[in-house]
Design a protein around this nucleic acid. Structure first.
Lengths: 120, 120
DNA sequence: AACGTTCATCGTCGATGTACGATGAACGCG
DNA sequence: CGCGTTCATCGTACATCGACGATGAACGTT
């Protein structure tokens, strides 16, 4: 059976939305801490698939894993691994929605990354 | 014989300066290219030592490898490897200065990285 | 020409990253 | 309850990273 049950241009995510976002964490004053943090966040962006995933999440403000699997040409397990890396870096958050999982950007952490890069 | 020949608070880099900088490369219009490029640059920042090195270079506008080896607690060969990665990413440029090598930031590429991140 | 200094490269080793298929856990539905 | 869907995790295989010491190449100095 196909996924197309209700409409023909379904986006799986439907109405799933995210919990309220956290505020932006502070930029470390200590330079070594700032370096470590920037490196950790940069590492999360160090793969094209993860950049693509994060862009998707930024665009549509919450997204089901299946949507990502449809758009990124990688196996489902591989995408799940990339999502885990993004989550471990604090850049995204996953919320269970029945049998599915909705991933959302953590805008504060993205803003922190932008701030760290802009301060280079 | 020590390096301290002329002054006692020597910075090895002395008067070594960099060639004029290149302008900022264009931000790719194709999203996949932008993702690849951002991932490639982010990977260069994905290690604290490389962030520290780049910060040094930004601060003092041109730097001798020995200065970096003095400030970063890693073996000389390891630092050379990190410099190579930064160079391969296009973020820095090395110019031979007698027996030494002066590394300089490529400000256009740094600006490109900032632009790509800011556009997230 | 011989030497010391400076830096890059090589070889090695363990750790981590990336990809996949297979399996498992959680959930809604019939 | 049994079943299909959805996603995470496991196990595996290969590539790359990150660190080091040792060696080599380029250069200035003596």
């Amino acid at each position: 059976m196909n996924v197309e049950a209700s409409t023909d241009t379904v986006k799986r995510n439907g109405t799933t939305v995210c919990a309220p976002a956290e505020p932006m964490p502070p930029v470390p004053t200590d330079e070594r801490e700032a370096n470590d943090l920037l490196a950790r966040l940069a590492k999360a962006f160090a793969h094209p698939a993860r950049v693509a995933i994060l862009r998707m999440l930024v665009r549509q403000e919450g997204c089901i894993v299946g949507d990502i699997v449809d758009e990124v040409p990688l196996a489902q397990s591989t995408i799940s691994q990339h999502l885990k890396q993004l989550k471990d870096a604090g850049l995204i958050r996953g919320e269970v929605d029945g049998p599915r999982v909705c991933y959302c950007v953590e805008p504060g952490v993205v803003a922190l990354f932008k701030a760290l890069v802009a301060a280079l």
